[in-house]
Design a protein around this nucleic acid. Structure first.
Lengths: 138, 138
DNA sequence: TAGCTATATACCTATTAAGGTATATTGTTT
DNA sequence: AAACAATATACCTTAATAGGTATATAGCTA
């Protein structure tokens, strides 16, 4: 549905490119974008809204968090451009560092939480996992 | 030199996409863009300037005409994105029609010109051909 | 030189978007 | 219910861009 022009319009902002590059690795929530990209919450939120309005991302709420992800079924156009994007940034330091940070954040364990908190978190993760929106919070 | 964001910014306008799609087939001058795209001269001129400012096209003057073409040496980024563009529009009616029109215009012969005019034109074409800016005018 | 053709530029208007501050909303926890 | 955490929205300011009209420029022709 989203036409080529709109896709390019979404791609012509650095923050949005970084967001999409991260989403190519998996779902992520707003606060993680914040810490990875180092941008204020409102900036992230507005860019995500922009991407969502143009159908480049989807979101689903999980407790207090809203998880963003690439659309489950993508148009051929979007697929091609995301593949091209991935190819274009693969040697770019900033984009690689973003992905590195992401893997650190999403692999964080529940150590340090109280048992109750840990159970809650793990249950959340399991539920999220089944909804294909797996992610982690401290 | 042109970064990815800038390339996407150039690509997020329909007229510019159509211009680039045509240039993928070969050099073309402003007035031909006008007749193929059906846009006023000033619009074409401004979009070409935009593309040139961002190093997505080059130009060279040939008599009264200014011929635009893709850069002789393109960055890897630009190459990838132009290839992706070509792939993305190959099933789009408008872009195909543009190319069809282009081939009609650029294959136009010198029939109907006075001998002197024809010689002049042909010399121009030869000169242009050697400068890799071959195109045709009535 | 004067007129002509092709192209470019100046200027104006309207729209869009980015970035910021403050506030609202939604869901959770106690 | 109240406080809290994560996210979203309203509103403002500034900048960029598209589109249009009018005019300028560059090169050719007679």
């Amino acid at each position: 549905m989203t036409d080529l022009i709109t896709i390019y319009a979404c791609l012509c902002d650095k923050t949005r490119l970084r967001i999409l590059n991260l989403l190519l690795k998996g779902p992520l929530c707003v606060c993680h974008f914040q810490s990875i990209l180092g941008k204020p919450q409102v900036a992230i939120s507005k860019h995500l809204k922009y991407l969502k309005n143009h159908a480049l991302v989807e979101s689903s709420r999980n407790a207090n968090w809203v998880i963003y992800m690439l659309p489950k079924k993508q148009s051929a156009l979007l697929e091609k451009n995301l593949a091209c994007l991935q190819d274009c940034v693969k040697e770019d330091g900033q984009f690689s560092k973003d992905v590195q940070k992401m893997s650190i954040i999403t692999s964080r364990s529940t150590c340090g939480l109280s048992p109750k908190q840990a159970v809650t978190k793990i249950n959340q993760r399991l539920a999220a996992y089944e909804k294909n929106t797996y992610f982690m919070h401290r």
